[in-house]
Amino acid sequence: MSHSVFVFDAYGTLFDVHAAVRRHAEAVGPDGQKLSEIWRAKQLEYSWVRSLMDRYQDFWSLTEQALDFAFRAVPSADTSVKPMLLDAYRELDAYPEVPEVLKGLKEAGCRLAILSNGSPEMLDSAVRSACIADYLDAVISVDELRAYKTDPRIYEMVTTQFRVYPEAVSFQSSNRWDVAGATAFGFRTVWINRAGVPDEYSDLPPAVVLKDLSGLPHLG
C-alpha cells in the first residue's frame, strides 16, 4: 500500500454514535431518534465553540452537557434514562465491518491509530468494548492539546507520533468537516459517507468517498 499509516476518527467512523439511544429506545420514548440527533449535533457544536473561545472542556463534559440540552429540547423523552445513556455511550457499538477492516490493514503491515476529540477515558472504554485494541498502534486524544478538530495542531499529532510526512497518512472520517481539516493539513483523506449526505467544503475534497469502511483495504 502507498500509505503506511491509517488513522481513523472514532465517533461516527468506528463507533456508532446513535447506538446508545437505540439500545434504550423503549425507555427513552417515541422521540428517541430526535433526541439522539440533537445530542450529537450539540456535542460537536460545543467542541467548536469551546475551541474558538479557547475555553476547553473535555469531550466527556461536553457529551453530558449536550445530552442535558437534548432532554430540554425533547421534553417527551424520559430524563430518568440519562445515566443509562451515558453508560451506553462509554461502550458504543462498533460498526459491523470495523474489526475485519482493521485486522486486514494490520496484516498488510500498516500502522493504525485513532485520532479523536474523545477524552482518553472515553476512548479507552470504547476501544476495549469493541475488542479492537490489538489492531491499534496508538489512540491519540485531543485532550493532550486541550483543543478540538479542525485545529491543524491536532492532525500534526499524528505526524509527530509516527515520524512521517502528512502524505504518508490515510485519514478516514465520517465527518465531512473533519475530512476538510485533514485534507488542508495534507493527509490523503477518505470520507466515510454512511448517511449519504450531500458534499460540502468543495475546495477541500476527499481523495475517496466510501459508504462504509469495508472498501478501505482494497485502496492503494
Rank of each mutant, 00 (worst) to 15 (best):
D212P: 10
F8E: 06
T13A: 01
D203F: 10
D68P: 00
F71W: 01
Q57D: 12
D134G: 12
H18A: 06
K103Q: 14
V169Q: 00
A25V: 04
F59H: 07
F8N: 04
I140T: 01
V98I: 12
R72H: 11
D203G: 12
L92W: 05
D16C: 00
R146N: 09
A41S: 14
Q172P: 00
T183E: 11
M122Y: 05
V209A: 13
S2L: 13
R90W: 14
M53R: 12
V49I: 14
P120S: 10
S2N: 14
L136T: 03
V209H: 07
P120Y: 10
A182M: 03
Y89D: 05
Y201G: 02
D137S: 08
Y89S: 09
F187G: 04
L210A: 13
W48S: 08
A108L: 13
D58C: 11
E91V: 15
E167W: 11
W191F: 08
G181T: 03
F59I: 06
Y95D: 05
G12T: 05
L219K: 11
E144G: 11
I132N: 02
W48G: 03
P217N: 07
V101W: 04
A66K: 05
C131L: 10
T160P: 00
R50W: 09
E37H: 11
L62I: 10
F171G: 02
V158E: 01
L219S: 09
G118Q: 10
L210F: 09
R128P: 04
Y165N: 12
M122R: 08
I132F: 04
F15C: 02
R40C: 03
H218I: 09
I132K: 03
G118M: 09
Q172E: 00
M122C: 06
A27F: 00
Y46A: 02
S202W: 11
L213Q: 10
K34H: 11
T79K: 13
L35W: 05
A182K: 06
A94T: 05
F15M: 09
F59M: 11
P198T: 08
A66D: 06
